[in-house]
Design a protein around this nucleic acid. Structure first.
Lengths: 123, 123
DNA sequence: TCGATAGTTCAATAAACATTGAACATAGGA
DNA sequence: TCCTATGTTCAATGTTTATTGAACTATCGA
């Protein structure tokens, strides 16, 4: 297990990879939830997404989201804290992330996004 | 060959399908070129994209773009005229298409988009 | 030091995808 | 009516993808 997962630099973020990442319902739900959380803490743990799929499948999607530059992972103890790379994405593709998140919000009932109460805040 | 290709209604357009369609470099180039063309005529023929790939492969991508609701095809003689479903997309996912096209324009050198002069206008 | 917790990695599987060429369908012009 | 131009459809191929469970690694607390 590498100490720090690999992340692309801002300039290495590619549009087709980002769109492909966002096109998967599970990953879109992850990104959406991270965006919702931004108002509160901007970071979530892997376990906060357990309602979406099994652990190993989530790890697969987390890796994809990291590799395409959508999110960043920080290791803290036995947990990994993840956040959206908002600034980098906004610099590379202005308005794109917001447009996707707003579109997802509009279709929240169609997409199997987690409900707000599925995310339990740790005190 | 069916007389009129199938197109989804506005409400049937789904976000993951649209993002998946746009994540393919060939399809992104098609959409980009259609967007560029909008200033002039808003419609292009299949043959105008021959520089991107072979005919049968293009037909495959055209079908995907139609099925996800990104573009509309109109049969005229032996040609098919295609245009972006801008209004429908704007109604379903406000700002999304523009954000993608602007992002593609920013990365025009990385993405193998066709140069303007590859598209030959018919008098 | 032992056990529990949090995630990742690996191998296997089935499904979806992009690409190719050949065959086909349709319409227009000589 | 035949030939050509324009695209689509079909079958075959190899690649990528998502998903699963089992094995593994690392950290924390008792």
């Amino acid at each position: 297990m590498s100490r720090t997962p690999h992340h692309p630099t801002r300039e290495q973020i590619e549009l087709p990879m980002v769109l492909d990442c966002l096109s998967d319902p599970t990953r879109l739900a992850i990104v959406y939830q991270l965006a919702q959380q931004e108002r509160v803490s901007s970071e979530l743990r892997c376990g906060d997404f357990n309602a979406l799929s099994g652990k190993s499948n989530l790890a697969y999607h987390f890796a994809k989201l990291r590799e395409c530059g959508l999110m960043q992972t920080r290791i803290v103890g036995t947990s990994r804290l993840m956040r959206l790379r908002r600034e980098d994405l906004e610099a590379r593709f202005p308005g794109l992330l917001d447009a996707v998140i707003k579109s997802a919000a509009k279709d929240a009932d169609r997409l199997q996004l987690m409900s707000e109460c599925d995310v339990v805040e740790v005190d």
